[in-house]
Design a protein around this nucleic acid. Structure first.
Length: 463
DNA sequence: TGAAATGTTGGGGCG
DNA sequence: ACGCCCCAACATTTC
């Protein structure tokens, strides 16, 4: 074959890339293409921070391609006309792309393959939907048995990983859209986009932090997590690369096992979204589809902006606004707070997270929110309500995380840091933090809110 | 991948 | 020495 298109979607990397490798092995010339799909661009589930990371990743990929004699072709329109025109321009006979099982991707790929020669290879997952099923052929809806079966299937070995190609021959005369900075995009300080950085961070994490991962991963005041999610999200790192590395890191080491577990949760939720696409619209649990949400817009705004008066919640929300990332434990805390303390529909929180998280992925995000709301598969029982004060004491014992993101609480003594409203007035003055002025009073009383939510969920189960 | 309420136990102070 | 009470510490149940 003379020419093939490598259609890049969530695989912004040259190493261990099946679609790219197949294209190179079967065609003399390969055209690397990324299509900026306006449907995704304009979606209310997309925000500037993730777009900035994506564009940065494309720029980095373009540089990597250029060092191998190629370059990235970037076009902006619906994929069908873009790819049709490119096939026409280049004479490409096949379009190779990494398989993506998410609902929009499947619908889009079906439209493309109806009129163009699209070949999907490999995939985002170690074990795609359909390969992890119960004995009766039904999908799992509980995590633990899913994990058992998933683990029993063969995992990739180091020899299975594909090397990055040395050279990619690409036709020289394709007018390509330059990769622009999106207006008003914040710089990705915490997460530098690109395959090189991703691989480096994986090595660093597995060489050092993973040992303490099991103990530290819940500590919001430490950097105990892998912080690899944005890279996995855009395939600057393949799941297979992560799996091979973690399995080699330390055999049966607690930290490695714990991190592997997180990767399997990611697989689990992708399977759930594949088998039950309606979870995007409504609760997985039928019995909890009629919760009488309060949905107070002022309370929602306070949550969004990090001024609920609960320090851990506010720190977490401000961390996300500032960096496009939030600690996993903090995600659970703020999700519990929105749904259980404010009684606001989990879908509001789901959308807001998608707008601000660099690693925002429809499957994991939906799974996490439904888990927190107690409405999902394998969910926390509805009565499992986080106490934001106790969560803070447990997972940010000295309040370092709070002080970092909520500077007005900086001088509040440790003993009041999780409950600043209990500070005596003199202490408030001494700490330059008068509650109600420098820092808000709690917008809701937790004990009262807990009772309200228990009643609302109970009512939903009855009706 | 909770937290609160309730129950049980056991040590020590004290009459 | 003994029973009684208090309460912390832990266990169990309930939401």
């Amino acid at each position: 074959m003379r020419t093939a298109i490598w259609w890049i979607r969530r695989d912004l990397r040259l190493s261990d890339n099946q679609a790219l490798s197949v294209a190179i092995s079967q065609a003399e010339q390969v055209v690397p293409v990324f299509v900026l799909d306006p449907v995704l661009w304009r979606s209310p589930y997309v925000g500037d921070k993730r777009l900035a990371f994506l564009l940065g990743g494309l720029r980095s990929l373009d540089a990597d391609l250029k060092s191998r004699g190629s370059y990235l072709v970037l076009r902006k329109d619906d994929p069908v006309p873009v790819l049709r025109a490119l096939c026409h321009e280049t004479g490409a006979e096949v379009i190779f792309a990494e398989a993506d099982v998410s609902p929009y991707a499947r619908e889009r790929d079906a439209r493309v393959s109806a009129v163009l020669p699209l070949q999907r290879v490999g995939g985002l997952l170690a074990h795609p939907p359909g390969t992890v099923l119960k004995k009766n052929g039904e999908p799992y809806t509980v995590y633990t048995p899913f994990k058992r079966t998933w683990r029993s299937l063969p995992l990739p070995q180091v020899d299975d990983l594909l090397p990055a190609p040395d050279w990619i021959k690409t036709p020289a005369d394709l007018a390509s859209l330059p990769i622009l900075d999106h207006p008003a995009l914040p710089a990705c300080v915490l997460f530098v986009p690109g395959e090189g950085v991703a691989q480096q961070r994986l090595r660093a994490f597995l060489a050092e932090d993973v040992v303490q991962y099991a103990e530290d991963r819940d500590r919001m005041d430490l950097e105990g997590t892998s912080r690899l999610s944005p890279y996995l999200r855009f395939g600057m790192l393949s799941l297979q690369q992560a799996l091979v590395a973690v399995l080699a890191a330390c055999d049966a080491c607690k930290g490695a096992e714990a991190w592997l577990n997180e990767l399997i949760w990611r697989e689990f939720y992708m399977h759930i979204l594949y088998h039950f696409p309606d979870v995007r619209r409504e609760s997985f649990r039928e019995s909890l589809r009629e919760i009488a949400w309060e949905n107070d817009p002022d309370a929602f705004a306070a949550w969004q902006e990090g001024r609920t008066g609960y320090p851990v919640v506010d720190a977490a929300m401000r961390q996300m606004l500032a960096t496009g990332w939030m600690h996993n434990r903090a995600r659970m805390v703020v999700a519990s707070f929105l749904t259980k303390d404010l009684l606001i529909d989990w879908r509001w929180g789901e959308r807001y997270f998608m707008q601000h998280l660099i690693d925002g992925d429809p499957a994991s995000n939906n799974g996490g929110w439904q888990w927190s709301a107690g409405t999902g598969t394998d969910a926390a029982p509805y009565f499992r309500i986080f106490n934001p004060i106790l969560q803070g004491k447990k997972f940010d014992p000295q309040g370092a995380y709070i002080r970092r993101w909520v500077p007005e609480l900086n001088k509040v003594p440790d003993r009041y840091i999780h409950r600043p409203w209990t500070m005596p007035p003199e202490e408030q003055k001494a700490a330059h933090c008068v509650i109600g002025h420098a820092y808000p009073s709690p917008i809701v009383d937790h004990a009262w809110a807990r009772e309200r939510t228990l009643a609302a969920y109970k009512q939903a189960k009855l009706s």
